[in-house]
Design a protein around this nucleic acid. Structure first.
Lengths: 346, 346
DNA sequence: ACGAGTTAGTAACACGTGTTAGTAGAAAAG
DNA sequence: CTTTTCTACTAACACGTGTTACTAACTCGT
């Protein structure tokens, strides 16, 4: 008698069907190029259904060297994750694509301190077949380690000087599009608040796009109007506060993250400034809140779910060895969403 | 020579240290009540470090019957997940607690169609040791199945008529607190927009709390001012639109979800109504956006991260068999956060 | 009738670990 | 000197599956 009454193994199915365990495996996995009589097939399937047999995923993983799970690795602090308005879309996109391939998603989190080691813990333990790194911030050593590691990895967001596969948007071009729109409305004194600290590559890229737009229009960039936020509404609030306090004059602001723009907007309101009458406000990301903001936020739409889906597909290709390990770069398009937070300069 | 060059097993460690595989296991797992000489211990640890040995999680899981992973099961549609402003906090709370116990989190998603079977797929395959159900919506059959199943389960949000362990707030009392605050401000015609359809138990509970507050104040509930939204800002927008169109008069609105309130607020603004001067608006949840809303939203704070952490701890206790399977109910406190979206009736 | 091929299935190994039962050798006890 | 106890370790099994190599029995062409 079995120790755990309610644990059904393939041996139990074999016994009930009156065949060998091998046959059970061959039938249930529908192995091609092997001859099993239709009656036996039927008996096995019948027995499996009767017992409610579900193969043990761990045992399958052990022998097949495939866990059928991928890791989503978040590389931010506790607090950043909790306030990330973008995460649900990433997860939603990942879930839909993963389900199509019958793959599970394991979510983990790397504190910046233990970066180098922690990245590999899951993969080395063969808990996952590959991983997706979200908004990575890596030093050269970590990049090298990842490149030489055996674990398939895809980044959401690119990193300068790395040949690792990634899925991203063209941050420079997107930000340039945003800033150019403000310039086109006649603004010449434009503030810029980044989405994140410069270590996160998307941040300097978006600021660069902002610079490009101004430079192309023959406008000198006022460095005192450029400021780096830190993902959260709080940081946006603080940045905008500091900007207002500095006394520098500006008629528009480009905030490279809607989430940060939430805070920046609150600071403007506190200062008694109206949007867009006194200051035009341009966001970035198009999080769900943006269209319901007051006024509805003009922003750059980042295809978050598509990004996640592409990353997932790319990773699955890598795992199956279909794609090359290097030079797999996918760039998705962004879109300027004009709403009501920007207005031509009087 | 090994097939996969870069795969290090305990056998390799044993060979290098000149001991048996058993000894390696005993040393590295620090098994108590067994005698191993300090020199041998040192040799093993040295060898393991040298080779960068990491035990195979799947093999460990197979033999120990513990995967050291728990499942977070989301029970909503694709679109609801993507726009859920609450999810990041849940995940953040789960990640921190899980990390303390060296547990991984597997995230999965159950479409309402395949409910009954899909719930168990992960657990039956022994991919996870237990699961957390988020905002469950279950029929009686599914509850029965869960209660009789062998897989430890904790719900975030309770279900009427179920003895399953859960972590929740007192929705009735919290909503009553919110509505009573509006009543206290002198409002008598108050609209109510739920957070979700009635099938999700929190929705009718919050509406009930709303009713209680009015009844206790001797105010008759106008059923035409009660309306059920569907998690998203869109649904809140539509509800509020319908309410305005109905011609029923109201001076305040209780929206049982900040996320829904985002949309409701947009509809009010579109109608030219000012908050709080024309209509007072009360939310529920205190998502990060709430305090930066314009005006800052008065709401009920749901301790999202604490909820997730408690659920995680409860589940881990269940898995270790320390707690009883039934009658494990944790209720956390809510808090009325007064900001500026509500105002005394003129 | 007889080797060759086909059909329908099975025994046995591998995956990498945790753990129980057991064993040499040394020390202690009688 | 023998017996017992203790130390420090190891051989062997178990977990549940996928897969390769093998084998009886059966068919078929000559």
């Amino acid at each position: 008698m079995p120790l755990h009454r309610n644990r059904v193994t393939s041996r139990d199915v074999a016994k009930l069907a009156g065949v060998s365990r091998t046959t059970v495996s061959l039938v249930l996995n529908n192995v091609q190029g092997i001859q099993i009589s239709p009656e036996t097939r039927q008996k096995v399937i019948q027995a499996a259904n009767e017992l409610g047999y579900v193969p043990d995923a761990m045992a399958q993983a052990l022998v097949s060297r495939r866990t059928k799970a991928i890791g989503l690795v978040l590389t931010r602090t506790h607090h950043h994750i909790a306030t990330d308005a973008f995460l649900p879309k990433i997860i939603s996109g990942l879930l839909t694509t993963a389900r199509e391939h019958n793959i599970r998603i394991l979510i983990d989190w790397v504190e910046t301190q233990h970066q180098e080691s922690a990245y590999f813990e899951l993969a080395r333990a063969k808990r996952i077949d590959g991983m997706i790194l979200s908004t990575p911030r890596l030093d050269d050593a970590a990049i090298k380690a990842l490149e030489s590691a055996e674990v398939p990895t895809v980044m959401m967001g690119s990193i300068a000087g790395s040949m690792l596969p990634f899925v991203d948007v063209d941050n420079v071009q997107a930000a340039e599009k945003a800033a150019a729109y403000l310039v086109g409305l006649g603004h010449r004194e434009i503030a810029c608040i980044s989405n994140a600290p410069p270590e996160y590559t998307a941040a300097p890229e978006r600021v660069q796009g902002f610079r490009n737009a101004l430079t192309k229009a023959g406008i000198a960039v006022n460095e005192r109007l450029v400021c780096y936020a830190d993902f959260t509404p709080e940081s946006g609030y603080n940045c905008m506060k500091a900007l207002l306090k500095s006394g520098e004059r500006f008629t528009a602001a480009f905030v490279a993250s809607d989430n940060v723009a939430i805070g920046a907007k609150a600071a403007l309101r506190e200062a008694g400034l109206r949007i867009p009458d006194d200051v035009s406000l341009m966001g970035f990301d198009d999080i769900p809140w943006a269209m319901y903001s007051d006024p509805p936020l003009t922003t750059i739409r980042l295809p978050a779910e598509a990004l996640a889906q592409q990353a997932c597909n790319l990773l699955l290709g890598l795992i199956q060895g279909k794609e090359h390990w290097e030079n797999n770069h996918i760039i998705l398009e962004t879109e300027l969403i004009v709403r009501k937070s920007c207005k031509a300069r009087q």
